[in-house]
Design a protein around this nucleic acid. Structure first.
Lengths: 190, 190
DNA sequence: GTCTATAGGGTGATAGAC
DNA sequence: GTCTATCACCCTATAGAC
């Protein structure tokens, strides 16, 4: 019984890694089964819906959970400090998370409505969590939510451009400088 | 002679459309040839390196050219106004451009060094063009470049999150509000 | 639960005629 | 330049034995 679950989890994990590396269409069921050490037939026993069902399971496990990173920035005493801390933690410390998000973006067009909903739900919770933290420095709730959205756009935009599209290798601009300028600006907004 | 060029261009254009819709691995040489109205053999006459060579040609033609959009914002008289105009033009007016950029991101891991270089070169020119416009309002050149980078991160981040990942369908936050807050902040920075 | 064997079809690519 | 014909291989998925 325990073995069954482990093998299933192992398949999802391995498929996730391969999908991330080579994309859904670029990865064959054969590759996945081989990497796990089972036959294709065994894979089809665990996933009655085959490759497509496997993708669904992977999507569920691949949506990055970022909320705890916001928790770690609770010690910030100014909006500027909060943004800088969040930027540092989200931007540089975990390239793997950015890779997952990049993958979500590449597979998004082929996702079902339900799969998209899972992602949206998680991201909105993340943004709401930021808005709640920002609320300490921005009293107006609507403005706090807009500030939160602006922060996520900036940080993810940096991630996509400089990390996923590797602009960091050809630009001398440092992430810290961009975040600092942005944080200063937000704190000084009229 | 003219026919030869037209057919080649037609192949690149059609392949580009299909790659964008279904991805590189999700599109077969057969599909492309059929859509253009030739046989596979004819395609291999035009592209000696086959599907891979076709991809290379598509990448070259698919890198979005955004510089002229910056030119259109030259009338702005303040930094805030400039950012708002650029945001409006880049963010909302051209979903097709965002789609191309999303595709660049999906194919980026499999691009060759030379292909990545083409993209980087074009994007740096775009960013440099923004920095030059921003220079009218920000005298220090280094700061102007940082401001330009911050602007591109924000705008592309919005595009990826709200358009490519379709957050716009589940969030009531308006792009105009985010851009306005950001533009105000930048102009007020200390 | 996992295996072997296989069906049925799509894939990228090429040879050779016109 | 474009065609027909074909190759050798890989693909997803299933049937049936153990």
């Amino acid at each position: 019984m325990a073995e069954r679950t482990n093998r299933r989890d192992n398949l999802v994990e391995t498929a996730g890694r391969l999908f991330l590396q080579h994309g859904y269409d670029g990865t064959s069921v054969r590759q996945i089964a081989e990497a796990v050490g089972v036959t294709e037939a065994a894979l089809y026993y665990h996933f009655k819906d085959g490759k497509r069902g496997l993708l669904e399971a992977v999507i569920g496990s691949q949506i990055p959970n970022l909320i705890h990173i916001v928790d770690e920035c609770e010690t910030a005493e100014t909006l500027q400090e909060f943004v800088v801390q969040l930027g540092e933690r989200l931007g540089a410390l975990n390239p793997a998370r950015m890779e997952k998000l990049r993958w979500m973006l590449t597979e998004f067009p082929r996702m079902t409505a339900h799969e998209r909903e899972m992602f949206h739900h998680k991201h909105l919770a993340f943004q709401q969590r930021i808005a709640s933290s920002v609320g300490r420095f921005v009293p107006d709730p609507t403005e706090a939510r807009t500030v939160a959205a602006t922060i996520t756009c900036l940080i993810f935009g940096y991630g996509f451009l400089f990390f996923s599209l590797d602009l960091q290798s050809v630009s001398d601009l440092k992430q810290a400088d961009i975040i600092r300028l942005f944080a200063q600006s937000l704190a000084a907004r009229t």
